[in-house]
Nucleic acid binder design. Structure first.
Lengths: 247, 247
DNA sequence: CGATATCTTGAAGTTTTTCAACATCTGTGG
DNA sequence: CCACAGATGTTGAAAAACTTCAAGATATCG
């Protein structure tokens, strides 16, 4: 039932889970035998909408996605950015109605896995269930950290913090190194994520550039002064829980 | 090993889980046989601190608690308020280092359950693991909703939204009815939760009182106009996922 | 190459914060 | 029961952070 590319896609899920937990050979095999369908999606396309009741989960193989909710008068709040290896709608496995929307930011390749198969897998292998659960907990920890930013930090600190966070997340899956990465989001997206207007994001970015902290051009971010960026954003990576779970 | 009051405390956990999932007789029994120690804590006391590595979870039996993080210069962000039935440090089961602090707001009675026993329980009963996992997912959904408030709503809408949320949460465990409940938090706490200064909270509350939406005196909140409160806060209870999971 | 999205700038307005003072409530010991 | 101390609530005035609106510049995409 699995084509070559599908086997590849589930390897990505194994790698992701092994970055946060330890899997036995049997557990690894069980994940690799999940049925998964690969799809290529355009930029700006919704994967699951607020109010939907999805019957499958989505593993990101390539590209960026985000979760968001739209209020009236065009106000929008982005809750999270997602990169390859993430399963951003994992929650639909246990919360049947979507309370927000999941959509792509760039063109993206995803693997779709039926809920029934995920449920069977997690029922049969408590270790896999625990790994996914742990992933949900880290997800929540990131929400809390964003809350601190939006609630208690200046625009400057918020943006700097996000740049630190995305660098470590991308680095963990091999998509960034040398304090440099592709950041395929607009200043509007940045504002919607951090509770700022695009105008203020723009001015703050210029300020950061002027102070020599970053370079940002053509969707490429270069962190010129990592320690200083961490300092001004009060960034402490503990909340990302990137250390592997003790075996 | 269990005294009468300890048995009572675990009944509270069973009731909580049954409010979000369906348990079999065997699962119910397994939960009731968990070892738990009851403790009475003073108001303003920390249960688990940022950086700690707890070896037990805490079930709230009576009183209020909150999770928060302190930044420099006295800035503080409260992430959540917790009421009887909650296990606010459930995450320590899978994320070993606390990335925030859990503390009481009022005097509180808690039951302490060792991680080892919780882990054995969830490994043996996938249905219980799923119920706890679901609880974590709702926790995260509430964080997202607070992000919308802090990021995109006025002080007025944020406070109104919190009042709606706490009413439904308290009602779900039988601690509120008739649009009235005990709200044992200061205006400073409210500000720290919603990303506002206490001064602005004070003025906004007066505004809400003046418009006849609420009465708030002696830690007692009366919602005088529920529909209007929901409207101004753009409150939609979907995110609380209070409907019981389909069996 | 033209259309559309994104970025940038200026100026004015709004929300919210900060600071500082004073009032009120709450609990405790005398 | 009162006095007191500390915490909490209230008010005013000024300042800061950020938004909004509007327009023009630049980049991107078909």
């Amino acid at each position: 039932m699995s084509s070559a590319s599908e086997i590849h896609s589930l390897t990505m899920l194994v790698r992701k889970l092994e970055s946060i937990a330890t899997l036995s050979d049997e557990e690894r095999q069980a994940i690799l035998s999940l049925p998964a369908k690969t799809r290529v999606l355009q930029a700006g396309q919704d994967i699951a909408r607020d109010g939907d009741k999805p019957s499958q989960c989505c593993l990101i193989l390539d590209g960026w996605a985000c979760r968001y909710k739209v209020l009236d008068k065009g106000r929008r709040q982005i809750f999270s950015f997602h990169i390859p290896g993430d399963v951003p709608d994992l929650q639909s496995l246990h919360l049947h109605t979507m309370d927000h929307t999941l959509g792509t930011i760039t063109q993206a390749t995803v693997a779709l896995i039926p809920h029934d198969d995920m449920r069977e897998l997690t029922t049969r292998y408590p270790g896999i269930a625990a790994a996914f659960w742990r992933d949900t907990l880290v997800d929540a920890a990131i929400f809390r950290e964003w809350m601190i930013g939006i609630g208690r930090k200046t625009a400057y600190g918020r943006i700097a913090h996000l740049f630190c966070e995305m660098y470590l997340k991308l680095q963990a899956v091999g998509l960034a190194r040398g304090y440099r990465y592709t950041l395929p989001i607009t200043q509007i997206d940045l504002g919607d994520a951090l509770g700022l207007s695009n105008v203020h994001v723009n001015r703050t970015l210029q300020d950061m550039r002027g102070k020599g902290l970053i370079t940002l051009r053509n969707n490429t971010l270069v962190i010129e002064a990592w320690n200083e960026l961490m300092r001004v954003s009060e960034f402490d990576p503990t909340y990302l829980h990137l250390e592997k779970r003790a075996a």
